[in-house]
Design a protein around this nucleic acid. Structure first.
Length: 702
DNA sequence: GTAGGGTTAG
């Protein structure tokens, strides 16, 4: 019996227990441990690991750790590795508590080493993963497949493809690891993250064993590179398609501005009997946002609510819905979603602020920004794009300037080229064109198309062909195919009466083969059916009725003071001809059909592919008053809400004294945020002060 | 251990 126990005890304990004083040395010739005792300990270890696995907070884990120490298991790699992994998962800084626990173990096994390496691979500093790997090898411990997945994760995180290649070589050198499925998958992931699609594809092609994860990784990579054809081809070849793979395709189409195909794919996915989760929903919501039609918006919202991932269930779905309803023209619906959300984060706030800004509700946008600052959510760069845009559309130049000047100091968000574009837009629209130009020319980074485009747009509004020429020259370099830039410059010349320049530019456009996009508008008629109208075209089945209705409408509006704004036509033609052209702009046709086909009291929603012209804008204003209808026009820039003879983009309707009804001023906001930042900084310093700095970075794999 | 997600101005 004794002999049997002796035999079993040696078999039952392979490399689990390290040899050193302080922990039982399992050498059957020197120390005899009864089998029952070993079994008890093994059971205890199993139990501790499972308790750790179920722990959800630091307090619970610390209790288990205390128990580990009481039972004398601080050298047991199996348990300690789990402890380290759980701590890292809970975002406890790896180089503090977990590292300390690791250092207490005299002989770490590969799994314990890997737990720590993985911790750094998730949290950073990523180079510490490599340092640890090298130390592990020097101390004679061989890696396991987990080690490589962790290392590839680290390389992917810092986009270090050279290091990734070295580790790739090691997987082949050490043997056996290159053919491991998970190692292969993380390797593909690393190459794709670093932007080496070909290398990822090569690993994929050479893999002996692939699973749906390997395929999906590549599908996503192709989708992100804009190559939906290759993505689709892979998807067709994929033997067993799961929900994630389907979602990758739906999202891919949505991200590549192909919303109709995204919807088609989603329908196919449902036909295939696939489940829908929050990630799928986000993809499809984004597609509906691009379509801008309420019919689809309501349809997808129903699906979201039925599947249990509605705005109250998921903060991500909620934020996507806010964005979708804003883009579909239903800012009220977006508000309702926002108010009904249980949890809100920076995405929810930013989407709502941008929604308000887009719809000309600067007041609401600023108020929401203020409310956000009272919560624990901190603004990010997108939030500032929203807030600055709101200031721009409300003509709040002084407030905008102060926010921009204090972004970095008070909020910790450094201004990017996009924020400079907002400022150039703001100054430009306010008529301060010289200052806007100076800002564009002196900004610390290379100005992007947005910056010069904003300036060019402002030059058209304020009829300044000289500065327009400068902005346009930059734009012609940055966006050689951007037809809109040529049109804007053309319009600016026309407004200034420089017809020679107009014809010179038109000739240049012809030479370059650039064609003006025909103006096109869509209007939602009954039951959400969408009707399309092109400028000057009378192809709609009811076009005779529409033409008559439009003429009647024009007469009524003229009686109320509407006069065609002839300068909106940039052709050197007779006034009569100009009037005729203006009257056939697509949005006017859409409006006439909207009035014919919807009931009194219904809001008329029109979408347009290019910017609404000044004349149509005045026409809509007047129509909203005379016909007593709410009219919403979404052009390629923003939303216009016409109500009782005014538009939401009319600056004079917004507050402009730096103070709103809440009774706060901008300096108060800045002060408030500064105190938050200081407090955060203090907390951070006090935590970091206790933690040892990790080793130097920059070591390569040896 | 591995794959899919939301907000950006002219």
């Amino acid at each position: 019996m004794v002999a049997l126990c002796r035999k079993l005890s040696t078999i039952a304990t392979p490399n689990i227990f390290p040899r050193k004083q302080g922990y039982p040395q399992i050498n059957s010739t020197q120390i005899f441990i009864p089998f029952s005792q070993l079994q008890r300990r093994r059971l205890l270890e199993e139990r501790l690991v499972s308790v750790l696995h179920g722990s959800t907070n630091l307090v619970q884990i610390k209790q288990v750790h205390a128990h580990i120490l009481r039972k004398g298991l601080e050298q047991c790699c199996y348990v300690i590795a789990k402890l380290v992994r759980m701590l890292a998962q809970l975002d406890v800084p790896v180089h503090s508590y977990p590292r300390l626990v690791f250092q207490q173990v005299n002989y770490p096994n590969p799994f314990l080493w890997t737990a720590l390496i993985r911790g750094y691979a998730v949290q950073g500093p990523f180079s510490e993963s490599i340092v640890l790997y090298n130390r592990m090898r020097r101390e004679g411990t061989g890696p396991v497949s987990f080690t490589f997945t962790a290392l590839f994760k680290a390389c992917g995180a810092v986009l270090d493809v050279d290091l990734g290649r070295q580790i790739h070589a090691q997987t082949i050198l050490i043997g056996g690891f290159a053919s491991d499925l998970h190692v292969g998958n993380t390797m593909i992931n690393m190459y794709l993250k670093c932007g080496f699609l070909d290398c990822g594809r090569k690993v994929f092609d050479e893999m002996g064993q692939r699973d749906v994860v390997s395929w999906t990784e590549l599908i996503v990579a192709y989708a992100k590179s804009g190559d939906m054809e290759s993505a689709g081809e892979l998807f067709r070849e994929l033997p067993v398609k799961d929900m994630v793979a389907w979602t990758a395709m739906v999202t891919g189409y949505a991200q590549n501005a192909r919303p109709k195909e995204a919807l088609e794919f989603f329908e196919r996915m449902q036909d295939a009997g696939m489940e829908t989760d929050d990630v799928t929903l986000v993809g499809i919501i984004s597609a509906c946002a691009q379509l801008g039609a309420n019919k689809y918006a309501n349809w997808v919202r129903d699906i979201a609510e039925k599947s249990g991932f509605g705005p109250t269930g998921s903060v991500v779905v909620g934020s996507a819905l806010i964005d979708m309803y804003s883009k579909c023209g239903s800012i009220e619906e977006a508000c309702k979603i926002f108010e009904g959300m249980k949890e809100r984060n920076v995405f929810s706030y930013s989407s709502m602020i941008l929604g308000f800004a887009m719809h000309g509700r600067a007041h609401a946008a600023m108020q929401l920004f203020r409310e956000m600052l009272k919560t624990e959510t901190r603004p990010n760069r997108v939030t500032f794009v929203g807030v600055l845009t709101a200031c721009t559309h409300a003509g709040l130049v002084e407030q905008g300037r102060q926010l921009f000047a204090n972004m970095e100091k008070c909020f910790g968000v450094a201004p990017s080229a996009d924020h400079y574009a907002c400022m150039v837009d703001m100054l430009g629209r306010a008529g301060q064109l010289e200052e806007a130009l100076e800002l564009a020319e002196t900004m610390p980074m290379q100005p992007n198309g947005g910056v010069w485009g904003a300036l060019l747009g402002a030059c058209r509004i304020h009829k300044n062909p000289e500065i327009a020429q400068i902005a346009a020259n930059h734009l012609f370099q940055l966006e050689p195919d951007g037809i809109g830039n040529y049109i804007l410059l053309c319009n600016t010349y026309a407004l200034a009466g420089r017809w020679d320049d107009v014809s010179r530019l038109r000739k240049l456009m012809r030479e370059k083969g650039l064609k003006k996009n025909p103006g096109c508008s869509w209007v939602e008629a009954k039951k959400g059916v969408i009707h399309e109208f092109y400028a000057g075209q009378m192809t709609h089945p009811e076009s005779i009725k529409i033409k008559q209705a439009l003429e009647d409408l024009q007469d009524r509006l003229k009686a109320h003071g509407y006069q065609p704004i002839l300068s909106s036509v940039t052709y050197d033609i007779s006034d009569e001809e100009k009037k005729r052209l203006l009257m056939h702009h697509s949005e006017k046709l859409a409006l006439a059909y909207g009035l014919l086909s919807t009931d009194a009291g219904c809001t008329i929603k029109i979408m347009k592919n290019i910017r609404i012209c000044e004349d149509c804008h005045a026409f809509m204003c007047s129509a909203s008053q005379v016909m007593e209808r709410e009219i919403v026009v979404r052009d390629n820039m923003r939303f216009h809400h016409f109500h009782d003879g005014a538009c939401s983009c009319d600056k004079s309707k917004c507050f402009d004294d730096g103070r709103n009804e809440m009774g706060w001023t901008l300096p108060e906001i800045l002060q408030l945020e500064m105190s938050v930042r200081l407090r955060e900084k203090k907390i951070k310093n006090s935590v970091l002060g206790k933690i040892r700095e990790p080793n130097q970075i920059g070591e390569s794999v040896g």
